[in-house]
Amino acid sequence: MPDALVIAAHGSHLNPSSSAPAFDHADRIRETGAFDEVRETFWKEEPAFREVLRTVDAEEVYVVPLFISEGYFTEEIIPRELRLDGWNTDSWDSDGTSATTATLTAADTGQTIQYCGPVGSHDAMSDVIVQRAKSVTGDPDVGEGFGLAVVGHGTKRNENSAKAIEYHADRIRGMDRFDEVQALFMDEDPEIDDVTGFFDVSDIVVVPLFIADGYHTQEDIPEDMGLTDDYREGYELPERVDGHDIWYAGAVGTEPLLADVVLERTVEAGADVRGAIEQVRNRTRMAVEMDD
């Protein structure tokens, strides 16, 4: 029986573009032919987590959560709604950013489920953040003379959310690519409101670690940073704020290379999709600079 990939995302009752990253990355993976079936499923849209597995023919299914952090949705909601027998929060044996995969059986269908960690806490996400910086500046060599701010929610919502932001900020700092790298948050210190105060360099790329563009990335963050008083009026790229040029990237989840992280997650779980990963990287014009 062929393998299937299910991409599990949040979706929205209100925002029609919330599901766009899940669809776009699923399509990129469909194009590679790496899986016989690729399905999107949503918490707020259809097919619902509860019903998606019964729409899949394969006996073995890789499920990759298109979420940023390990926490409520990935550790409670998705396993519960997919009816993954034997799941518990220790199944990934993760410290909050080190989830890999758990092999479980879906009580609903009897399928073997390779339940993978979320894209957001995978190491390759660091490369997607860098790629986002390249995309938004239009400069494949962006780094020198630039600061990078990785932005997330704070711990008020989920402790692991802040961990993932700091984890990737640390990793990118370790690449010695940008002059300065800073993790910033919406609702705790260090806060995004004071973004220019955290950097000495004049150019700052701001990449929010969110899957989809929506209220936070399109309204909150631009206004909080002072890019604009009213998001509806828009802003320049880059926008001048307090003597700095801010290159605001919007949600990292819309970056085409994120499809690569979805595939990387399935590789960890045993899928043989190395060829597809190469295709995705080539198509998204990823420079050859992966850590491995």
């Binding site: 259809e46 097919p47 619902a48 019903e51 998606v52 019964r54 729409t55």
Partner: peptide, 14 residues
Amino acid sequence: VGFFYPATITNWHR
């Protein structure tokens, strides 16, 4: 049909 009406075929069949 699955994109228009997700999971309706499988639930109908059940």
